[in-house]
Design a binder for these strands. Structure first.
Lengths: 227, 227
DNA sequence: CCAAAAGTGTTAACGCTACACCCATGT
DNA sequence: ACATGGGTGTAGCGTTAACACTTTTGG
């Protein structure tokens, strides 16, 4: 066998490191993602919240900082998704990006961007605008992961308020999985998992029978087959 | 609500980007991982094969290149695992590392390192030597992913030769999952999945009844509940 | 003929799916 | 009283888990 080539460039590494965040919520039975509108470059395109990692922070803390600065969102459970390293994913620079994703209840947050961006808002996943960089790819990949997570873990709690009805919970599942579920079987399954428990309250909304409100027993991440 | 702080450092980003590879195999019913022995710095510690990404390559191609240069291993299906970004994970520099992992049949490869390293060899996961950097953490994390993968996908093919007996296959599962499986149920399950088919050959090894040899119908990655 | 691994079915328990009607409220 | 979503049980089916003996070969 021939001896190993060692061709390493001895010039300086010239790659920038960024993070991008796919933040999801469900509004009116539809899955939405949080986007910011570009201003200084790539004007009028929308993008996932994201930016460069500082020298003294981990990728996780960069993601939290940048998300907060660009959208006002804080205190979310961010999960690392994938690292995107295609050569031309950023047209200006060589940038490798660590993507994160998270789920939040839409009503829990006041969206607010900073002067560097023109706007921030929720977009339906089914009606995405034109996205900058490779962010469409990242968004689609995130959505795949989301379907997996909601099916196999108790992570749905992070899309709901503290107390919620079983119908609200089922609506989350149907929105993300994009299919209808049987009401009786869904309830049997969820209650059997012992991950939620009834409160003593009832919802008093609308012209119909009030719904019992439930809450999650624990929010510690758990792997559990749900659907 | 107060206006958003924008505290970004405007000094240059000074973070290096590397890849590390967890390469697994099963030898004599025991899970092993491929390690190289350090020479120039961190002398006498062992480490996962890894190094810096070049300016003109993706993380994936860097992983393939570096793995080949440092161990002689080529043509493997590398899967991205996680990106490790702790501040002090490398004692000399700020380095963020994209970890990859792969499975190979041990007998398919001739291990050969290069002059920068002192040695390369397989180590039992149960008897790891002292590892450099945060590589112990990466190795353990890889092992968790491996258990998942072997349970829920057809990836076991990459640990076996072209043709193999059902007992060899079961041995792979038992070694990785670290538990015994029922022979009859295992065979029923695997054959029912239609992912392998019999060849017309039999193994002629040892003082016992010869085993029918099987091969994988396809090696395309598939998600299938196996165990 | 002995040791060693290969090969082979059945049963009982459990979990999943499909399915339709009554209840409590607001207007 | 009616419109709206909330709430409930069962039967049939398929899947899984537990379990032990016979077969084929080499030495």
């Amino acid at each position: 066998m021939e001896s190993k080539d060692i061709k390493e460039e001895h010039g300086k590494q010239n790659i920038k490191l960024a993070v991008d965040c796919s933040i999801f919520t469900v509004i009116d039975g539809e899955l939405h993602i949080l986007l910011i509108k570009m201003k200084e470059k790539l004007t009028d395109l929308w993008a996932l919240p994201g930016g460069l990692i500082n020298n003294n922070e981990t990728a996780d803390s960069a993601a939290r900082r940048i998300l907060n600065q660009q959208t006002g969102v804080s205190d979310v459970y961010l999960e690392q998704l994938y690292t995107f390293s295609e050569l031309k994913r950023d047209p200006f620079d060589r940038v490798i990006s660590v993507a994160y994703f998270a789920l939040i209840p839409a009503e829990s947050v006041v969206l607010q961007t900073n002067p560097r961006y023109e706007d921030v808002r929720w977009w339906k996943m089914k009606e995405l605008p034109k996205l900058a960089y490779d962010h469409k790819k990242i968004a689609k990949y995130s959505q795949k992961r989301l379907k997996w997570k909601i099916s196999y873990t108790n992570s749905a709690w992070s899309l709901l308020p503290e107390e919620f009805s079983l119908s609200q919970l089922q609506d989350i599942y149907e929105s993300i999985l994009e299919k209808k579920l049987d009401k009786r079987n869904f309830r049997k399954r969820i209650l059997g998992l012992k991950i939620i428990e009834p409160t003593d309250k009832k919802s008093t909304f609308g012209a119909h029978r009030p719904a019992m409100l439930y809450k999650f027993i624990t929010k510690k991440p758990k792997i559990i087959e749900i659907i």
